[in-house]
Design a protein around this nucleic acid. Structure first.
Lengths: 194, 194
DNA sequence: ACCCCCTGTCCGATCTCTTGACATCTGTCA
DNA sequence: TGACAGATGTCAAGAGATCGGACAGGGGGT
């Protein structure tokens, strides 16, 4: 059952995340003020704590929502190709292009030595990797029937880490990186094909 | 200040009105079930009572909201004309056409001897008349500078009652009625012009 | 006469948010 | 260095709204 109270709760959470997102884009983790997030949403500071525990919890929630949206897009790119290697290339390119335009990522990796929030992409990147696996493995295992599941997951893992590295530390252009990775992983996939 | 709680309260009221509107259109006043309005909104029956007092109060609230929307449209028709008589004619025609298409009015005036809700258009029509005056007089007094305010109000009152009568008891086509009323009231407005 | 359904009311339990207070930490200014 | 402002994080009391269950009353149908 979908009660009004449940919908209201979801809406509150969503509006708080919107406010926090704006604050993060505007001023990074240090510029994020709990009292300001509450004020912008029309709610007390305590309510923000009730919902997210602490400031880092709020950051993680914003990042998780953003990552979900991000992955939907990447998954679409993956799904538009029939061949695994083509899918890999398309998804990687899409991910790098999206990341380059993403305001939250830009804010986290901004000039000043980088924001604390950037840790979610580096030293505290497990969550992001796990979430990405959950969202991408499902598709891969279903649509790459000729590749053993375990090998597909391995492949996704490698690609994921390379992409994440390129997001944090950009190298060549998106299309170039995508092509590189596809060329490197292609033989592996082909050799494992059943 | 626009707190989250206030917005939520308004949203609740609005969703309840939506549910009640649907129920009224589907089954008239007798088909309106308080428990059903609550269920559709995901809220208890008690909450519906807290918000509207009783069933008749809920009906009045639905009617009031609908009337507001209706009058915005009629007021637009009035405002599109420079000449008072043209405005009167346009507004009357618009009102009759809108009323003919309005699902709520259709339900209230449906075949079976007519619904209890129809009383809001007849024996309990004062509220509607007063609301209409509030919404229309403001425009008329501002945009008909050549007509004394009192006379403008009188004119609106007569037109309003004729229109309401035609809604409840349709006569000629909308355009014909509008022309009739304009022709009858025209000389009065002209004679009072300053 | 009986039953069922709906209206309308009451009240205690529960949940969420608010408010104010407090400890703690950090950066800044004198 | 010391005082101070501003931020995080925690706690408890209290207010407000909703829920759930119960009950009385009134029709309508069998």
């Amino acid at each position: 059952m979908d009660t009004f109270a449940e919908r209201t709760k979801r809406r509150l959470r969503d509006e708080l995340l919107d406010a926090a997102y704006d604050a993060l884009v505007a001023g990074g983790y240090d510029g994020l003020r709990m009292v300001e997030v509450g004020r912008r949403t029309g709610v007390s500071r305590q309510t923000v704590y009730n919902e997210f525990g602490d400031k880092w919890g709020l950051l993680e929630a914003v990042a998780a929502r953003e990552a979900e949206r991000f992955l939907v897009d990447v998954n679409d790119a993956l799904a538009e190709q029939d061949d695994p290697i083509d899918g890999l290339r398309a998804a990687i390119e899409r991910a790098l292009v999206l990341a380059g335009d993403n305001p939250l990522i830009k804010a986290a990796l901004g000039q000043p030595g980088s924001d604390q929030a950037s840790q979610l992409l580096t030293t505290r990147g497990q969550q992001l990797l796990e979430l990405s696996h959950q969202r991408l493995d499902a598709h891969v295992r279903e649509h790459w029937p000729e590749v053993p599941a375990e090998d597909a997951t391995t492949c996704v893992d490698v690609a994921l880490r390379v992409v994440l590295s390129h997001i944090v530390n950009p190298g060549a252009a998106a299309a170039v990186v995508a092509e590189q990775v596809a060329r490197v992983l292609g033989p592996f996939l082909t050799s494992r094909r059943q």
